[in-house]
């Protein structure tokens, strides 16, 4: 069973009476342990695709299955559970809560899972150590550099031990050194912990960290390239 399976996915918006087709008949299958980069010019539907995979949005047509769950049939609360337990998000502008320290930010998904305080703290510190921020547990986001903030965000994404990490332009707001650092962490998470990673990027060299590059144009998948990092995906 594939981790993620999109079949004939379409997504249309209505913008001032005009129908906008953000995605048209997209078919995509991602196996557990894959590392996929999604590329494409702006307006090609990258973010829409990522939102649908992340269960933040629902397709207008088609079927989407994640770990055996049929997303288009689920209600809001069930989607929240899916996001909470199966998916970790990493955003371009980090989106840390400014008045919570690093550990509390990382604990966020665990709180909505209903875990008790001690267990949360243990897992949060473990996750921060995994991204090399064991010394920054009690720092507020404003006391951290951009790269460090993004690493806190990654710690938040992995704290709940998800099956897949979805990253929307994870290096877009970072200098190239920090960006490479983030990619190194992704690669390590992917290799050592077997977490599937799907990232949207517009930088070719960042995309090359993935095993496959999925190129979008006008809401359709143009082609899927294997990279040098790629392994045979069955």
């Amino acid at each position: 069973m594939p981790l993620i399976e999109l079949v004939n996915i379409s997504r249309t918006y209505r913008l001032n009476q005009i129908r906008v087709e953000a995605l048209r008949d997209v078919n995509l299958t991602i196996e557990e342990g894959d590392f996929v980069s999604i590329m494409g010019p702006s307006g090609s539907g990258k973010s829409t695709l990522l939102n649908i995979i992340g269960c933040l949005d629902r397709p207008s047509a088609g079927t989407y299955t994640i770990v055996g769950n049929r997303v288009e049939k689920m209600n809001d609360n069930q989607l929240a559970d899916i996001r909470n337990q199966l998916i970790g998000f990493v955003f371009q502008s980090f989106h840390l809560l400014p008045n919570l320290d690093a550990a509390a930010n990382v604990e966020l998904p665990l709180i909505y899972r209903g875990l008790g305080g001690k267990e949360r703290r243990r897992r949060a510190i473990h996750a921060l150590e995994a991204v090399g921020l064991g010394e920054r547990v009690h720092h507020l986001p404003s006391q951290l550099s951009g790269g460090e903030q993004q690493r806190v965000a990654i710690a938040r994404a992995i704290a709940g031990e998800p099956r897949v990490i979805l990253a929307d332009e994870p290096t877009g707001a970072l200098d190239s050194k920090s960006g490479e650092n983030i990619m190194a962490i992704f690669t390590k998470l992917n290799k050592d912990m077997g977490i599937t990673i799907i990232q949207v990027t517009h930088e070719e060299h960042i995309a090359q960290y993935g095993h496959r590059i999925c190129r979008l144009r006008d809401g359709q998948i143009l082609q899927i390239d294997e990279t040098q990092n790629g392994r045979a995906v069955t």
Partner: peptide
């Protein structure tokens, strides 16, 4: 709204 979005993304339900 961003804070709300982040909370929703990491699994907060409407009731939360």
């Amino acid at each position: 709204t961003v804070e709300i979005g982040v909370r929703r993304a990491v699994g907060a339900k409407q009731i939360d």
